[in-house]
Nucleic acid binder design. Structure first.
Lengths: 338, 338
DNA sequence: TTGTAGGCGTTATCAA
DNA sequence: TTGATAACGCCTACAA
């Protein structure tokens, strides 16, 4: 591969001049500029990114940490993040933690090794204190998980309020005994949503049921399993708050199979307004999050910190959510005809 | 940030010795090794990845090109690719082309800039000749798209055979007039599947209908739109071959809404055996691809070429597919009870 | 077993 | 307007 040196020789000029042309710098006469450009073309020269990185101490790469990319919530986020990063000339490294703290730390190490300029975390597997160490090596932005003590920008919806509204919606449509199905026992999202859930129950004089049983729920599979557990252990439950549309879909799938009617026998609400929530029959009421805007903001905040420096302060960026009402919580009989 | 020089000074040794310790090389006495390790710990030293890259001419990073990450087909592939790459100590850069040839070329440039060691392409937006140029800069593996003239490893199922079997399945379950809904008019996947589709029709004495209309189909949205177009222009169609489960789901969603019965009035088959195909009501018959194995193989092939060199030869890795029969093509009345 | 020194390909500083 | 030279941080002949 041709180097800047080769180009310089070929053009009969110095590396410096070639470098100036490459970087569109002033103080290059027109004829030299042309000679350099011809030489570059002739040799098929492309600047070596490793050398640039070493010299500039920048990688123009960011890492996005998430549990797994097949989860629609996360792949929608990262889709927009990659697009926005690309606009800014940054690459995105995809880092699946599979909810393992060790894996998360491995990926955080990318920051210390200077393999990336910054990191966006869309989930949190270690205690915040562990993560905080890495701020010495570069900026971090939190997406979704709102750690109120973290001296970094956090981008999220008001999870507590959303869960509160979802629960009130269930109650007002007739639910009197409600299960809270939400994965990530120790996540901040979990805690915030649980707060909102309990607040709604409390306000309406409904006593919460033991939810330990349901706290490992994340995907279609767990939604299916939980249907059967609820049938077996809590047959009187007539409302379900599911932390994701996939979980709600899995739950409803089994309910339909078992002849339990949604919403007649049991109301179900999901989260995220994914395609599946519209496609299911019955369609699923859900909470919509503005993925694209949130993802875009995360990247902007991170790139800004990378390029203009960062100071350690907590800074909340709260985005609006929206309840999308559909058949799964509608006691009026406006069902989609089969 | 501490450099190898700092560590050397701190330990009262040379850079060389420190380097030897870092890289687990022989010829370091135990006491020096300990002194170096202590120094590294004391200074919080981490080797700088940019410097290593420049020195070693390796990045331990690969790029995966795909249209968009929210498409389940592609996010399932990349999920497994990232895991396998991680096992091998490689990072994965995610490159969404959004089906734009220019974007694809931009990402291929990563190879020329030496920003990645190799590339996996799961779709193809430029003519192969354009892509072939980049083989001068590093290895490429094709996943899914089988370009028979490409001197690279290609990993895929037998698309023609799969489409043939799907079509026969439709016919044997009663379809006599079939629409071929498949996106990517000029893709190799499209051509191969179309071949299988036409072969089946031909064998059973069914004449194909004009398919131009349906060739932009990829996602839920287009599935929905195509239902209405077919209702309007080809009301006698009673079988649908959809190139993805999402498309099939969108089609069925509108059919159900319009009171058209699947499978009684029209048979539908999807592709990929995604979660949605099981969850829909009626559930969708589909073709399963072994994503995980294919993705793993792609990464192995690429890493092998990166580390052991590559020669330009075409090499096919064909994986088995499987038809998963469900309600959407079943004329027997074993319907899931509503 | 340890250390010296050169170079990977760029860019920035300084002098001409 | 141009060019010589010194880093960036690491690894590896080669010498000791």
């Amino acid at each position: 591969m041709a180097t800047i040196e080769d180009v310089a020789k070929f053009a009969g000029l110095s590396r410096t001049t070639v470098s100036r042309v490459i970087n569109d710098q002033p103080y290059v006469s027109e004829d030299k500029r042309v000679r350099v450009e011809d030489a570059m073309k002739a040799l098929g020269y492309v600047p070596n990114s490793s050398a640039r990185r070493l010299r500039s101490q920048k990688t123009e790469t960011i890492a996005v940490l998430l549990p797994r990319i097949t989860n629609p919530f996360f792949n929608h986020l990262i889709e927009s993040m990659e697009m926005k990063a690309s606009e800014w000339g940054y690459q995105v490294i995809i880092c699946q933690t599979h909810n393992l703290p060790d894996k998360e730390r491995d990926y955080l190490e990318l920051l210390r090794k200077k393999q990336v300029d910054g990191i966006i975390m869309t989930s949190l597997e270690n205690e915040w204190e562990v993560v905080e160490e890495y701020l010495q090596s570069g900026p971090i932005v939190l997406c979704n998980e709102n750690v109120s003590t973290a001296p970094v920008p956090v981008v999220h919806i008001d999870q507590e309020k959303a869960a509160y509204e979802a629960t009130i919606h269930l109650i007002e449509n007739g639910a009197s005994e409600i299960a809270f199905l939400q994965g990530g026992h120790d996540s901040y999202v979990f805690r915030d949503r649980e707060k909102g859930f309990l607040k709604a129950l409390n306000e309406r004089g409904i006593s919460p049921i033991e939810t330990e049983l349901f706290s490992s729920a994340v995907d279609v599979k767990s939604g299916r399993e939980l249907f059967h557990q609820i049938q077996a252990h809590y047959p009187s439950i007539n409302g379900v708050f599911a932390g994701s549309d996939e979980m709600a879909a899995g739950f409803i799938y089994e309910a339909v199979k078992a002849g339990v009617k949604v919403p007649e026998d049991i109301l179900v609400i999901g989260f995220d307004n994914q395609a599946i929530s519209m496609l299911m029959n019955p369609s699923i009421t859900t909470i919509e999050q503005p993925f694209q805007k949130m993802a875009g903001r995360c990247v902007e905040l991170l790139v800004q910190q990378v390029e203009q420096g960062y100071n350690l302060k907590h800074e909340e960026h709260v985005f609006p959510h929206r309840l999308q009402s559909r058949v799964s919580t509608s006691r009026q009989t406006n069902l989609v005809p089969l």
